[in-house]
Design a protein around this nucleic acid. Structure first.
Lengths: 123, 123
DNA sequence: GTCGTTGCAAAGCCTTTGCAGGGAA
DNA sequence: TTCCCTGCAAAGGCTTTGCAACGAC
């Protein structure tokens, strides 16, 4: 049976307590608030496991690098403002379901990054 | 005035002769067929320049890492087949123009990665 | 007791940078 | 001649791995 260590539990609760995608450093820092000896390698190893198990997914953010978030979050896309450099979660999906692919192709996943100018910077 | 070196010319013609996104190693290998002394740092430096000038764009491919392609190619998205692991260019855009964002947000760019099962593997 | 997990340190990619020499205008 | 660019080697991030000790079952 797979041992449930305090380290893995800590990493999981970091994600359960955050609604935003997190970087490895952020996961490590927050995890250490619960298990002070938490090591970076342990974080990497568990992230890899959790991604393989499908509990987490990786996001490749053009500015912030690799981020992680829970796979079962409500569907959304990320919007990056080139002016203020902030990242926003936008609800819903911008894919057009009526656009057809060449026949035979089956879409299972999609990752969309929008960028431009946000609400506050477009005045 | 900005010198046009044989190295930069070689890198540009690599892209003019390829219709697919290329990795740094591929660019280096093909560039060396034209300028045998071409160095990896030179490739990195010129890629960075060409991206800043808007001639190239970077793609963050989940499997193959960072790829580069000309920005003025016909609009398309990449599709990655999880079975055979190949990457396809799919013509057209799957974004739904009628989907509205929260007001004030202006989309200037978007990057879409589709993945699933391709034509050949879905039989 | 057994086997997976952790911490630590070292090694591995990929990418950037410092510096001296070389090439374009 | 004057800069910018190149090649080389070294350094920097981020991520993975080997190994011995530890912890869950």
């Amino acid at each position: 049976m797979k041992p449930k260590t305090s380290q893995r539990t800590a990493i999981e609760s970091v994600f359960n307590q955050s609604s935003q995608p997190l970087s490895v450093d952020e996961i490590l820092a927050r995890g250490r608030e619960m298990v002070s000896t938490l090591n970076q390698s342990t974080v990497y190893r568990n992230l890899k496991l959790l991604v393989e198990q499908g509990w987490l997914k990786q996001i490749h953010h053009p500015e912030r690098g690799t981020l992680y978030e829970r796979r079962d979050k409500t569907h959304h896309h990320l919007f990056h403002c080139r002016v203020c450099n902030r990242v926003f979660d936008l609800p819903g999906c911008v894919l057009d379901p009526s656009k057809t692919l060449p026949s035979g192709f089956i879409i299972e996943e999609h990752e969309v990054f929008l960028s431009g100018v946000c609400r506050d910077c477009s005045d």
